[in-house]
Design a protein around this nucleic acid. Structure first.
Lengths: 227, 227
DNA sequence: CGGGGGCTTGAGGCCACTCAACGATAGTGG
DNA sequence: CCACTATCGTTGAGTGGCCTCAAGCCCCCG
């Protein structure tokens, strides 16, 4: 669990713009790229937070474990997402590549140094942390109070927003991952999807079970009784 | 739900030190105090976030509602806690006084102005947001994967840390509040407490059901299988 | 002392979980 | 190219933990 995956590419300098830092300063921070194969760990919970990561391609899950193996996935990180940004010195989740994944990484310390002098960067760090907080807050409502059907509906709508290509949601994660994200079992997730299929809310593409078409977003949104 | 409670006291200037801002700058921000009676709303979800609050005395719950009335409490705010700090312009929770509560409040805008020029203040804002995030992350694990007994055990340990006086936890909130915090029903919370009592893990003080003595913190911590 | 809200406890029900079988798919090696 | 295997997903049957509904107690407070 604490084995750091080694990568093959060399560091190369870049600007912070890719991190959503629209700072004008041309500050150079050490940037490099890593690749992780499907299923490998990127960092472990309680490891020192040396780097911040941005997904170039692929998908990442970040989760916590109980001692008996129960798992709660806190978030999925998709192309463009930044993760591993901690204020303290330790990571609070374990992260793994769901599929083969390429990430860009930034030394945490260099980011902090820049933030110290550049108010714009500091504000962006706060803004990113706030987005994460907001997501966690919404997810608490889902985990604490929603039914299985509502959870799956909310999940599909979230993924629809984040990775739809041509109306089709190509899910990178397994039923088990979805279940551990939604606080359910994989069987319950599967049953909920079948039920939504029966209801005519969604369709499946081809023979692969990972591609989903949303046919009735309104009905989905009604299942996911917001507010 | 969106009725702002009006208060009776006048604003008076103060320093930011009470907010955990150890800034040396003597910047004055507009500060005032309000009192809220038991059960009254402090602000509503989606209201503009005009102020940031600090609990002087009392206790506050912040929650989200689903349209059919299901409620998820995201956090309890006790003496000294700061709440209502949003990055965006809107509050993401509704907050209510659980008991008669006095709060100190700061104009959000003045805080932002100070943060712009003072890196120390900016860092403290980030640090507070990160604490909130960390709490939410831990709570997701609880809501998604823990049993009712583990949830109640975790709750007691959290309250033990935050408000124990002389070994006794004097809970300001009702069973329903606890239930809505833990994603359970009030009956299940009550049964879990009875069970812990039977197990000799805790005791009750006097006749009031709101005062609890932890007799075996280790056993509680084992129920709340961390890691 | 009466009323009401909060808490506990019991009985029964239901939703999600567990256990299990089966089908489909993709990857592997003969 | 085709078994062979492992993995993933679906579906069914049965269980169980928490919820629902209900009754009763205690305490606070008027």
């Amino acid at each position: 669990m604490f084995v750091r995956v080694t990568a093959d590419s060399a560091p190369r300098p870049n600007s912070l713009r890719d991190l959503g830092m629209t700072s004008d300063s041309n500050t150079l921070v050490s940037l490099s790229e890593f690749s992780y194969r499907k299923g490998t760990e990127i960092y472990g919970e309680k490891e020192p937070a040396e780097y911040v990561y941005q997904v170039k391609s692929g998908a990442v899950r970040s989760y916590k474990l109980l001692s008996d193996g129960r798992r709660q996935i806190g978030a999925f990180h998709l192309t463009g997402d930044i993760f591993g940004l901690e204020n303290g010195s330790e990571h609070r989740f374990t992260t793994e590549a769901i599929v083969d994944t390429a990430v860009r990484l930034i030394k945490r310390q260099s980011l902090e140094t820049v933030a110290e002098s550049d108010a714009m960067v500091a504000r962006n760090l706060l803004s990113m942390t706030t987005s994460n907080l907001q997501h966690a807050e919404d997810h608490m409502l889902l985990l604490g109070r929603k039914t299985s059907l509502e959870r799956v509906a909310a999940f599909l709508l979230e993924m629809d927003k984040r990775l739809t290509a041509a109306g089709v949601i190509a899910l990178p994660m397994s039923r088990r991952d979805i279940a551990d994200y939604l606080g359910l079992t994989l069987e319950t997730v599967s049953r909920a999807l079948s039920r939504l299929h029966e209801l005519g809310v969604l369709g499946f593409v081809g023979n692969t079970q990972r591609q989903i078409v949303l046919l009735d977003r309104n009905q989905l949104a009604n299942l996911d009784l917001q507010s």
